[in-house]
Amino acid sequence: MLKINNLHVYYGGIHALKGISLEVPENKIITLIGANGAGKSTTLRAISRLVSASEGEIIFNNEDISKLKTTEVVKRGITLVPEGRRVFPDLTVLENLKLGAYLRNDKKAIKDDINHVYEFFPRLKEREWQLAGTLSGGEQQMLAIGRALMSKPKLLMMDEPSLGLAPLIVQDVFEIIKMIHQEGMTILLIEQNAMAALKIADYGYVLETGTITLEGTGQELLNNEQVKKAYLGE
């Protein structure tokens, strides 16, 4: 579904991604793990065209999207749940969800999808008219995911959904990711919480200072000595 070949990204003078290649097949959860500054977020930002790649191609459903605008990328069906949730704090929960559907015109389907999101997250339904800034961290993460789902993506990219959440809530978030996946969503997940991410992932990549050093199925990586040492704390 999504294929990245030899992607290079520069941030100012820093060579953040040094030619990475990866593949996201349909209906799979793919995870990208790595330490701070390894280039995980940069990869996602490059895919959704929030930063420009200097070299390489990003192929989504047989189309090179590496020169498109962000709006176009979202239209093609790739949506990013940004790092740190980034809900719109002074807008209500409902308004946030409606913004997720900004590029869609089918009013009735949008309504159905809002209800669908509420089925996923009953807490959001309760807080429909509350300002998003007044939600707790976990609820904001749910809203951020719900907002992204509202754009009806084919590929959902999540940037550290467990960031700054209590361990119990982190579990919830991963449950939700599994549920969304079971509905047939393709997911590209970035996590520092390598253990949890690899457990639910079909396939994983390990990113180190801008290059992919290891790859394998979730289980393989969980059992890999190197990964254990560096990311799982054993």
Partner: peptide, 19 residues
Amino acid sequence: RALKAIREDEKAAEAMGVN
């Protein structure tokens, strides 16, 4: 709503596909 989203968080609005 898109205008308000720009006010709240430009990058997040862009990620939602708002030009």
